[in-house]
């Protein structure tokens, strides 16, 4: 059966025979636009440097869903995710990536970062300035589901961290604060993209919490007239990590190209493309050049939660704090 199907497959699919190397980049939803710009730039660079052609394939979806596909055997050469836990999961469950991946590249293997911002309707009719405005009665907050979306998890942690940093902030107070935020959520989309559609296309809610670079995508797709971006007093530093999938590149013999592909993300060109897509670059020169599009925001890292892996276990796993919060909201 499988042989027959494989034969059919071979007959039908035109394999791009001209390409010497084909890399599959398995990525999350919001990175589509960035890699659309980055891939041709890298292909040009690679061709010039190694006299070798490289073809790049993309797969996009929710970060965890994509990681699961890799675990189940999707032959990604590189993964570019929005949370380190998704890559850790590939290390643990699928063993396709070797442990210590975050040490193989600079900046904990995250070539750029983003942060959670608040997007409000034009003119900010509800006067939303900071995280505490999200708990006000009558304010509807659009957030993707923290169980299924990295975007939602960062929002949850950002709100938690904000409450903790207020005078007299305790874990109990933070938990109450996050509960109050989620009480105001009318729709929980599975991913960040769904949440944006709900907010922009369906016109539901007063504020959308999402990544800073996603705000720019909204402006490009929906026009700049319909909304305003509000930077909260503090936010969470969302590092967007990348890794080579060891098992796949060793099998396909694409390690060199895959490593080059990721390394080039740190090059001035790669960093510039990132900045153009509103991802905060690491390169100081590029950061300085684009400084005016990245307002200074006080940031805290996931290290405040003992790392993403611990946060996942405490907050987002089944029966964790988020589940308890959701249950307590539903009971009301």
């Amino acid at each position: 059966m499988s042989r027959l199907l494989a034969a059919v497959l071979a007959a039908f699919i035109a394999v791009p025979a001209f390409a010497d190397v084909t890399l599959l980049n398995v990525s999350y939803d919001v990175m589509r636009d960035f890699y659309k710009d980055y891939n041709p730039a890298f292909a040009k660079y690679y061709d010039a440097k190694f006299k070798d052609k490289v073809t790049l394939q993309q797969s996009h979806g929710g970060s965890s869903k994509q990681a699961r596909s890799v675990i189940d055997g999707l032959e990604a050469d590189v993964v570019t995710m929005n949370q380190s836990t998704d890559i850790d999961a590939i290390v643990e469950k699928g063993k396709q990536i070797n442990a210590g991946w975050e040490k193989r590249l600079p900046n904990e293997a995250a070539p750029f970062s983003s942060l959670q911002v608040l997007i409000v309707r034009k003119g900010n009719p509800k006067g939303i300035k900071d995280w505490n405005d999200l708990t006000k009665p009558g304010v509807q907050v659009i957030v993707p589901n923290p169980k299924t979306s990295g975007n939602g998890r960062y929002t949850y942690l950002a709100a938690w961290g904000y409450a903790l940093k207020q005078a007299g902030g305790t874990d109990a107070k933070a938990r109450q604060f996050v509960t109050d935020v989620f009480k105001n959520v009318p729709v929980l989309d599975a991913g960040g993209r769904g949440a944006t559609t709900t907010f922009m296309q369906r016109q539901i809610g007063d504020v959308l919490v999402t990544f800073e670079n996603e705000a720019e995508m909204i402006a490009r797709e929906f026009g700049r007239g319909g909304f305003e971006v509000v930077y909260p007093s503090v936010s969470i530093d969302a590092d967007l990590p990348v890794a080579v999938v060891d098992k796949v590149v060793d099998k396909k013999g694409t390690r060199k190209a895959a490593e080059e592909y990721l390394k080039y993300l740190w090059s001035p060109e790669g960093q510039e493309i990132a900045a153009q897509n509103y991802l905060r670059p690491r390169d100081p020169a590029v950061a300085a050049k684009y400084a005016k599009q990245f307002p200074n925001v006080k940031l805290f890292g996931v290290s405040d939660f003992g790392g993403l892996q611990k946060a996942q276990k405490v907050h987002f796993d089944d029966g964790g704090v988020y589940d308890q919060i959701a249950a307590s909201i539903a009971k009301k």
């Binding site: 499988s2 042989r3 199907l5 494989a6 059919v8 497959l9 189940d72 055997g73 032959e75 699928g94």
Partner: peptide
């Protein structure tokens, strides 16, 4: 047919792709 599934490892070794390829979709 997944990498963690029953026949995943065998399929991997023989370089036969079922899921995440056309046979799986069919």
């Amino acid at each position: 047919f997944g990498a963690q599934g029953w026949w995943g490892p065998w399929l991997m070794d023989h370089d036969i792709k079922i899921i995440f390829a056309i046979p799986g979709i069919v």
